[in-house]
Amino acid sequence: MFRCFFKDDCSGFECVYFMKHNYDIFEKFKEFEARMKNKFQLTIKTLRTNNGTKYCNKAMLTYLASQGKQLETTAPYTPQ
Rank of each mutant, 00 (worst) to 15 (best):
residue 45 K to P: 02
residue 69 K to P: 05
residue 43 T to Y: 07
residue 3 R to I: 08
residue 31 E to W: 03
residue 45 K to F: 09
residue 53 T to S: 11
residue 25 I to M: 04
residue 30 K to V: 09
residue 4 C to L: 00
residue 51 N to I: 02
residue 70 Q to N: 14
residue 20 K to D: 13
residue 3 R to M: 13
residue 73 T to E: 12
residue 27 E to L: 01
residue 40 F to T: 01
residue 24 D to V: 00
residue 66 S to I: 01
residue 74 T to E: 01
residue 19 M to N: 03
residue 4 C to R: 00
residue 67 Q to G: 01
residue 75 A to H: 06
residue 66 S to W: 01
residue 14 E to K: 14
residue 35 R to N: 04
residue 66 S to H: 04
residue 62 T to E: 14
residue 60 M to E: 05
residue 77 Y to I: 05
residue 56 C to Q: 00
residue 18 F to Y: 10
residue 47 L to P: 15
residue 77 Y to N: 13
residue 28 K to R: 15
residue 18 F to P: 00
residue 26 F to P: 00
residue 62 T to Q: 11
residue 29 F to G: 05
residue 10 C to N: 12
residue 73 T to K: 12
residue 69 K to G: 03
residue 63 Y to F: 15
residue 25 I to F: 00
residue 29 F to S: 06
residue 72 E to K: 12
residue 54 K to S: 06
residue 32 F to V: 03
residue 74 T to R: 07
residue 48 R to P: 04
residue 19 M to Y: 03
residue 51 N to L: 06
residue 63 Y to A: 02
residue 63 Y to W: 15
residue 2 F to Q: 05
residue 16 V to R: 07
residue 15 C to R: 15
residue 12 G to W: 11
residue 10 C to W: 11
residue 80 Q to P: 01
residue 48 R to I: 10
residue 11 S to K: 10
residue 55 Y to N: 11
residue 24 D to S: 09
residue 62 T to A: 10
residue 17 Y to T: 04
residue 2 F to D: 05
residue 41 Q to I: 04
residue 14 E to N: 13
residue 79 P to A: 07
residue 51 N to V: 00
residue 8 D to P: 02
residue 55 Y to K: 03
residue 44 I to W: 07
residue 63 Y to V: 02
residue 8 D to K: 05
residue 43 T to G: 08
residue 62 T to R: 09
residue 30 K to E: 14
residue 46 T to E: 13
residue 50 N to H: 14
residue 79 P to Y: 12
residue 21 H to N: 15
residue 23 Y to V: 03
residue 64 L to A: 13
residue 46 T to N: 12
residue 47 L to T: 15
residue 4 C to K: 02
residue 53 T to I: 04
residue 32 F to N: 03
residue 43 T to P: 00
residue 58 K to F: 08
residue 16 V to W: 10
residue 16 V to E: 13
residue 56 C to W: 00
residue 36 M to N: 02
residue 64 L to N: 06
residue 74 T to M: 09
residue 75 A to L: 14
residue 36 M to A: 06
residue 6 F to D: 08
residue 69 K to W: 06
residue 54 K to A: 08
residue 17 Y to K: 05
residue 15 C to Y: 14
residue 22 N to M: 06
residue 65 A to W: 00
residue 23 Y to E: 09
residue 12 G to N: 12
residue 15 C to E: 14
residue 75 A to S: 07
residue 19 M to H: 04
residue 1 M to K: 12
residue 7 K to V: 15
residue 13 F to M: 12
residue 2 F to C: 03
residue 60 M to T: 12
residue 63 Y to R: 02
residue 43 T to F: 08
residue 3 R to K: 10
residue 37 K to Y: 10
residue 53 T to N: 08
residue 19 M to S: 05
residue 2 F to A: 02
residue 57 N to R: 09
residue 21 H to M: 09
residue 28 K to W: 00
residue 33 E to V: 01
residue 66 S to Q: 12
residue 46 T to K: 06
residue 51 N to Y: 01
residue 43 T to L: 03
residue 19 M to P: 04
residue 51 N to T: 01
residue 55 Y to A: 08
residue 53 T to W: 02
residue 46 T to Q: 07
residue 61 L to A: 10
residue 52 G to S: 07
